[in-house]
Design a protein around this nucleic acid. Structure first.
Lengths: 162, 162
DNA sequence: CTGTTATCAACAACCATTGTCGAACAACAA
DNA sequence: TTGTTGTTCGACAATGGTTGTTGATAACAG
């Protein structure tokens, strides 16, 4: 996404006000590679603006998304993540803790093979590599995780109910 | 996933009972290419078992997931989907209506380039092609959708609040 | 047949996210 | 420096998807 200064101009052009809260969020997101959730942004923002509200964070995040300044990612980790990097890239997702890392790689030949479109008008392709991050592969030799995606919400197999 | 008959055996082996409800869900899922949500399974199940509960559907679906008989997919469409096809394949996702279609294609060279693992122990790669299905591309020439993923929950830009 | 387990119904709780409302306030153009 | 207007806050309710709970009933499996 663009720099806080540029965003200031863009907001003004749209007739939107540039409040300290918004500027704070601009700064937090700028060059941020951590794909923070709304709640993560909120936590950081509170450090310098203790009275900022979660509602305002969501509001501004959505404003930025509607302007196309951040990408909204739902990688199945339970909450939506915001990515200020607008360039084409893919993701590594930890099935343990939900961490997301960028993967700047190109995969030539990554398009729907002819005749398999099934009526779809296909836009972008995103690749998600799922696995365990360094911390989680150390911490847990058990719990290899669900085979596919999943937000870690699989019922804890609590048989014997009732 | 395996046939209803095989699943019956597998459940018994685990000391689980094979109830009509479970068998019903086995049948609904078997060779089902629609990636149904739990609610979709529930709707079909009720057609032949009007008294089945949503709770039981979730329960059985999670049982099957924990056995590795179905894949749990969170494609950012708002609810989790269940895929009985355990083979390697990818997906087409409609950003309009959330429909999911299988894409049986192989993408050779789809692995994390050396040195870009960032500490991850990478397992599978899933490719999501986002676009519009035939129905949605006819129905909506407006609303091209959010650039990235997103469950269509972006706030409806209702300015002038307060 | 009998003991164990699954299911039901009905409800509450959870989480991420959005809506709402009034009051206070601050950005910014005049 | 003002006034207008948009923004924020706080506090709470509501949504939708999913899971927990409970007691009673029903059904599987040995």
């Amino acid at each position: 996404m663009r720099s806080p200064e540029e965003l200031t101009t863009l907001f003004r052009d749209r007739g939107w006000k540039v409040t300290p809260q918004r500027q704070c969020i601009f700064r937090i997101l700028h060059d941020n590679p951590t794909h923070p959730t709304a709640d993560a942004v909120y936590a950081v923002a509170r450090a310098e603006m203790p009275t900022i509200s979660l509602r305002t964070v969501y509001q501004t995040l959505n404003d930025l998304a509607s302007m196309g300044e951040v990408n909204v990612l739902d990688l199945g980790t339970g909450s939506v993540r915001f990515d200020p990097d607008r360039g084409a890239h893919h993701h590594l997702v930890c099935t343990g803790c939900g961490a997301v890392r960028d993967l700047f790689a190109e995969f030539p030949g990554l398009r729907v093979p002819d005749g398999m479109e099934q009526g779809f008008t296909v836009g972008d392709a995103e690749v998600v590599f799922r696995g365990l991050c360094d911390e989680c592969s150390v911490a847990g030799s058990a719990r290899t995780g669900t085979t596919g995606a999943g937000r870690g919400k699989i019922e804890s197999d609590s048989r014997k109910r009732g």
